[in-house]
Amino acid sequence: MKRTVPQIAASSMADIAFLLLIFWLLSSTLNGDQGIKRFLPPFSDSPSQADPTNDRNALVVLSNAFDQLLVDGEELDVSELRTRCVEFIVANGDGVTSPVLAPIEGVPVREMVNHQVIGEKRTNYQLRLNQGDISQATFNGAMEKLDRWEAAVEELGRFSALPGSAVISVDCDRATSYDLYIAIQNELEAAIREQRDRIASERFEMTYTEIEAEWKRQPENEALGRQVIAIREVYPYIISEAQTMAEGTP
């Protein structure tokens, strides 16, 4: 005898599943967060008293309560900031894609780096360490930097390095709007990224952004890693998160 199996009504199943789906859609957020990343300097009790305003190795971006910009003593619009920043970081030529020019007024002086210069610097540091002029930690730091330079020279043939004191500092009044602050940070970030992209696409037929992304995907690929490090040496990340001015200053 054939047993008849009663049919299960499955039509409501879809409704139940839809309900669950909608609940999940409403109560969840998709993927991570995005924004401008920054590394803050470690906390120190004494803010540096040095006034970098007249220093050619510092690009000082100030903004006031009326959202006006003062870049190295010159009033600028946010849209002009990127060009000004590019002038500053390219300085007298990076030595990779452009020849090194004579020093230009108001921007840092880049210094040509090759194996010979690195060798001389190494002996110099060793001597000063032996004489006790510098501490072991300073020496190790300097050696690490020279190692990176060496790697960059290997990769690019030659390049011209920014002085270690070159810095872009942003200082905002407490009443500056956050919108302007982000616009400033974005322009500075863009200036450095553009220059990195430029030399990367001339040398490696890929933009820096692409090389970096590719390296992230395959971290075992050392060739990509060397390229990234070399480019970073030519255009280092020099945006500093300086302390904001005390209230009442211009």
């Binding site: 920054r38 590394f39 407490r174 009443a175 709007s177 956050y178 919108d179 974005n186 998160e241 302390q243």
Partner: peptide, 28 residues
Amino acid sequence: DKETKMGIVTDVKQELRKASALKVLYSA
């Protein structure tokens, strides 16, 4: 919020530095 003034943001940043939470993302 983009209308916010930098004052409170600066205070927060300063406190983050004290707490050595140095990796910051300005969400945008």
